[in-house]
Amino acid sequence: MESITVIIETPKGSGHKYDYEPELKCFKLKKVLPVGMVFPFDFGFIPDTKGGDGDPLDVIVISEIATFPGCCMDCRVIGAIKVNQTERDGSTMRNDRYFVVPEVSQLFKEVNSLVQLPDGIITQLESFFKNYNEQAGKKFEILERVNAEEAYQMING
């Protein structure tokens, strides 16, 4: 599988959520998370894609690297979770999350699939996104985990 380029919106450790605003060509502060809640890994998107919510596909970058909003990096896809997200108005859409590792990562350089990650990382990430969405009055229902090849096909399908 070829690497994909991702753009970071919200860096790991941030208690603030940033979104890229294409019309303004900049990153805008979207929300402040509850006290003590931070993004466990970099959160961003895959340019020139479109998810069920109308935004570019969401990615979580599993890495030891400290980045910043707007940082671009080449990554390999290691899997995904298929997700139904129910908005406050009751409408439900697919809003999958893709897991990637930067090509330059040293700590995760041997990781090519979700099952190669340390125990609990994916479970903790699933819990983070459930809680994050709950705080916004939304429901985040995980349908299934998928392997790297299927995730890559979903991105390029």
Score class of each variant (00 low, 15 high):
Met1Gly: 11
Met1Ala: 09
Glu2Cys: 02
Ser3Ala: 15
Ser3Asp: 12
Val6Ala: 04
Ile7Gln: 09
Ile8Pro: 02
Glu9Gln: 11
Glu9Phe: 03
Lys12Leu: 09
Gly13Lys: 04
Ser14His: 08
Ser14Gly: 04
Gly15Asp: 11
Gly15Cys: 06
His16Asp: 02
Tyr18Val: 00
Asp19Arg: 13
Lys25Phe: 05
Lys25Ser: 13
Cys26Ala: 11
Phe27Glu: 03
Phe27Ala: 05
Leu29Tyr: 07
Leu29Phe: 05
Lys30Pro: 00
Lys31Ala: 15
Val32Cys: 06
Pro34Arg: 05
Pro34Glu: 10
Pro34Trp: 06
Pro34Val: 04
Val35Ala: 13
Gly36Asp: 08
Gly36Pro: 04
Met37Gly: 03
Pro40Gly: 09
Pro40Trp: 02
Phe43Gln: 00
Gly44Glu: 01
Gly44Met: 06
Phe45Val: 07
Phe45Trp: 10
Ile46Val: 15
Asp48Lys: 14
Asp48Arg: 14
Thr49Gly: 03
Thr49Glu: 11
Lys50Arg: 15
Gly51Ala: 13
Gly52His: 06
Gly52Cys: 06
Asp53Phe: 06
Asp55Tyr: 13
Asp58Ala: 04
Ile60Tyr: 01
Val61Ile: 14
Val61Lys: 01
Ser63Glu: 09
Glu64Gln: 13
Ile65Met: 15
Ala66Tyr: 07
Gly70Lys: 08
Cys72Gln: 15
Asp74His: 12
Cys75Lys: 02
Cys75Ser: 12
Val77Asp: 03
Val77Ser: 05
Ile78Arg: 07
Ala80Tyr: 07
Ala80Ser: 14
Ile81Thr: 13
Ile81Gln: 06
Val83Phe: 06
Asn84Glu: 14
Asn84Pro: 00
Asn84Leu: 14
Thr86Leu: 09
Thr86Val: 07
Glu87Val: 00
Glu87Met: 13
Glu87His: 11
Asp89Gly: 06
Asp89Ala: 08
Gly90Tyr: 11
Gly90Leu: 13
Arg94Ser: 12
Tyr98Asp: 03
Tyr98Cys: 07
Pro102Lys: 07
Pro102Arg: 09
Glu103Ala: 04
Glu103Asp: 14
Val104Leu: 12
Ser105Phe: 10
Ser105Cys: 07
Gln106Cys: 09
Leu107Lys: 15
Lys109Phe: 02
Glu110Met: 13
Leu114Asn: 03
Leu114Val: 07
Gln116His: 13
Leu117Lys: 01
Asp119Phe: 11
Gly120His: 11
Thr123Glu: 15
Gln124Leu: 10
Leu125Asn: 14
Glu126Met: 14
Phe128Arg: 05
Phe129Tyr: 15
Asn131Arg: 12
Asn133Ala: 03
Asn133Tyr: 03
Glu134Ile: 07
Glu134Met: 10
Gly137Arg: 01
Gly137Phe: 06
Lys138Val: 02
Lys139Asn: 10
Phe140Thr: 06
Glu141Ile: 14
Glu141Trp: 00
Glu141Lys: 14
Leu143Glu: 15
Leu143Tyr: 00
Glu144Phe: 01
Arg145Thr: 05
Val146His: 04
Ala148Phe: 01
Glu149Ser: 10
Glu150Val: 12
Glu150Arg: 14
Tyr152Gly: 00
Gln153Met: 11
Ile155Asp: 02
Gly157Met: 00
